[in-house]
Amino acid sequence: MKIVQIIIGLGVGGAEHMLRRLVLAQQVAEPARQCTVISLTSIGPVGKLLQEAGIPVIAMGLHAPWGFFTGLWRLKKTLEALKPDVVQTWMVQADLLGGLAARWAGIRGVIWGIRTTDFGGASRLTRVVRRVCAVLSSWVPHTIVCAAEASRRSHVAIGYDDARMVVIPNGFDIQRFCPDADKKKTLRAQLGIRPQDHVIGHVGRWNLAKDHLNFVHAAARWAAQNDITHVRFLMVGREVDASNDDLAQAIAESGCAGQFMLLGERSDVPDLLQAMDLFCLSSRTEGFPNVVGEAMATGVPCVVTDVGDAAMMVGSTGWVVPKEDAEALSAALALATQESRIEREKRAALARMRVVQEFSMERATLRFTQLQQWVAEKTQAGVERCVD
């Protein structure tokens, strides 16, 4: 089979890394499968990683909305030259441009990719593109893949064709994300964390959707009622550092400023997860939060807000609280730290087992591979609708 993957860009992000993991996993599983990745903008760091692994990457260099028609024509000509059996697109702009170019080039095997759940933070242009995609969803794509059940529901609500939708959750590298007691001990020592400290981690770039202040306010409520000198709050992410005035002020007013450790953006998040005893997702909106799966695979139980598919991911292995409710989040964090060592170890093992059984990269790769094969067969047979 020949597959072309189209994405808006190949910078550092959840969709970009999922695409990379999928392509590389399929390359190992089926060396004869030919895959080309097209970035509508630039190569980016993820594109360079793909190239280093021997995957052809084409950068279209499109950066302005008014270049849409020129880009559409160039993309059509590129697809005509590549002659793929299936074109798979990632995120709404690539869905529109890649889907139209593929159909114009006579390629019926189009798979759209939806990852967003909440539309509140989207630009006006993105909202317009999404509405156009909703109208075209009954004709352009053969199948629409959602990364989360919550994403499917939100897009059906604005007019996407539900009959063409399937849900394939992200897959996690269970070899890369796995418990390592020696690494945990070493990292905690390097960070100046005492053996008796209970480390609660928070990972995510500074963004309203991630609701970092909910996490800080929960810590403040907890500290106001209890002695939490044995607890450390480890926060990681772009702009999550002392130079962030809003975050620094909230922490200074929390009553437990000395318990916070702000590491900013780091490239060693898989290692930093090892240092945590508990992970907290405090977001007000999510789709399929990768970091929760990564923490669980590392054997770190999670306290999550009930957003996107977070509750489904955690299942009975962690704690789920309403979003934007610092009081409930504080209570859950306190409850989690009160468990005995044996209870914590059992919960950690269950969290990892859930990821291994339900959300491994192997399982996700198999589902995508089967879908691509199925779409190729159906479109070659003239079946234009997702009917199975």
Rank of each mutant, 00 (worst) to 15 (best):
R124V: 14
P301Q: 05
V292R: 03
V145L: 13
G287R: 09
Q26D: 11
V128H: 14
A59V: 09
P301V: 05
A219W: 05
E265H: 10
W319A: 04
A220N: 00
I114H: 10
V166R: 13
S138K: 12
E384N: 13
L191F: 10
N226Q: 15
D162R: 11
L79H: 09
G293V: 05
P45D: 08
R153G: 09
A364W: 02
C386L: 06
M312C: 06
M361S: 06
A295T: 11
M165A: 11
R188C: 14
A275C: 10
T78N: 01
N207Y: 13
T365S: 08
I342M: 10
D95H: 08
E324M: 10
H212E: 07
V307I: 07
E324W: 01
Q93T: 12
R131L: 12
V23H: 04
A220F: 00
R20D: 12
A332Y: 03
L136V: 10
T369M: 03
D388M: 00
R20A: 15
D180F: 07
V355K: 03
A328D: 08
I8W: 01
L97K: 00
K76D: 00
L278V: 07
V303N: 04
R367T: 01
F359H: 07
G67A: 13
C146F: 11
D182A: 15
S254I: 06
L273N: 04
V216A: 01
F368T: 00
T126Y: 05
T379I: 13
